[in-house]
């Protein structure tokens, strides 16, 4: 009886991490970073454009926000799609009024289905980052390398052609990866990855062909987590964003530049009753001196130049 002998063996019990994607590193012991013009906090806004197919299979799991009812789940399909028709335009207007730019993470399916939306995003000066094919094509350990390679190629092809941009950033649907996702992304020209939630700053990330970087997209300062998962009020949405910002701002005074990332889903925060709270939070952040609004690529390049 008992567990197999292997259960009491620890082959990776040694200094540092138990996988070799990145080095163990402590935030306060790193070289302080200087943002342009002495800014303390880089504001990185990431609206996420999602398309959930009506006939979602949910393999190997359903992405958060996926269909809930029996087929055809018109209710959830259309509410998610609301983000791409209505909600995103409220968010884009809120950004435009404040002269803010964003990194828009888009499913390739959104770009292909709604080319007008992609043109608007590019025309308004935002960065496009890839968010995979669609919300029912999850990258996971059981996906064949061939299938994953083709999925990445198709996603990047659609988004690069549609946006006319190089598309350097990647956010996996549901932030899920296989063991080889970073290698395949590096091969296909991706410079930075937004899936890993273990840091507040960029760091070097190993892939087979070359080093890429992880960018710290918060999984918690995220409207899905705050408004849907935790059922917090709109005032709490503001508190989460502003409290996060104020602490980073204070810390930046001692330890060097920090990053405030905002992960926004237009079907959530683009609702009429919520949008004003996003606007309020943005105003509370922007009224401070020393906030540098930038895209993910700009933040990464500024960081890399100092390493």
């Amino acid at each position: 009886m008992g567990m197999p002998d292997d259960y009491m063996r620890y082959p990776h019990r040694h200094y540092g991490m138990d996988q070799d994607r990145y080095d163990w590193s402590m935030l306060p012991r790193r070289k302080p970073v200087q943002w342009p013009n002495g800014a303390r906090v880089a504001l990185w806004i990431v609206p996420v454009l999602e398309w959930f197919p009506l006939d979602m299979q949910g393999k190997p799991f359903k992405a958060p926000g996926g269909m809930v009812m029996a087929y055809p789940d018109l209710r959830h399909y259309t509410l998610r799609d609301y983000g791409n028709r209505v909600g995103i335009y409220r968010i884009l207007d809120a950004l435009k009024k404040r002269d803010l730019k964003a990194s828009v993470a888009a499913n390739a399916a959104v770009a292909a289905r709604y080319p007008h939306l992609l043109r608007e995003i590019v025309g308004q000066g935002h960065e496009v980052i890839a968010h995979g094919l669609h919300m029912d094509r999850i990258h996971h350990g059981g996906m064949s390398e061939e299938d994953e390679k083709a999925t990445i190629a198709q996603s990047l092809d659609v988004l690069r052609k549609g946006s006319g941009q190089g598309v350097r950033g990647w956010l996996s649907p549901a932030r899920s990866e296989s063991y080889t996702t970073p290698d395949l992304l590096a091969e296909q020209g991706i410079d930075y990855l937004c899936d890993w939630a273990n840091d507040d700053m960029p760091y070097k990330f190993r892939a087979k062909s070359r080093a890429i970087h992880a960018m710290p997209l918060s999984a918690e300062i995220d409207d899905y987590a705050i408004s849907i998962q935790f059922h917090f009020s709109e005032d709490e949405l503001v508190h989460h964003i502003v409290d996060q910002f104020e602490m980073l701002y204070e810390e930046a005074g001692r330890e060097g530049g920090r990053i405030l990332s905002l992960s926004l889903h237009p079907w959530i925060t683009g609702q009429p009753y919520r949008i004003a709270y996003l606007e309020k939070a943005l105003d509370m952040v922007m009224r401070r001196a020393g906030v540098w609004n930038a895209t993910g690529a700009e933040i990464l390049d500024a960081w890399k130049a100092q390493q």
Binding site: M26, L27, P28, P60, H140, G141, S176, W196, D199
Partner: peptide, 24 residues
Amino acid sequence: WTRPLPDVLAYSARDYGNRTGFWR
């Protein structure tokens, strides 16, 4: 983890504690 391996989101969210959260 709730997701099949590798669950990079759950793993990395815990790793956040050692890299950054512990020090605060």
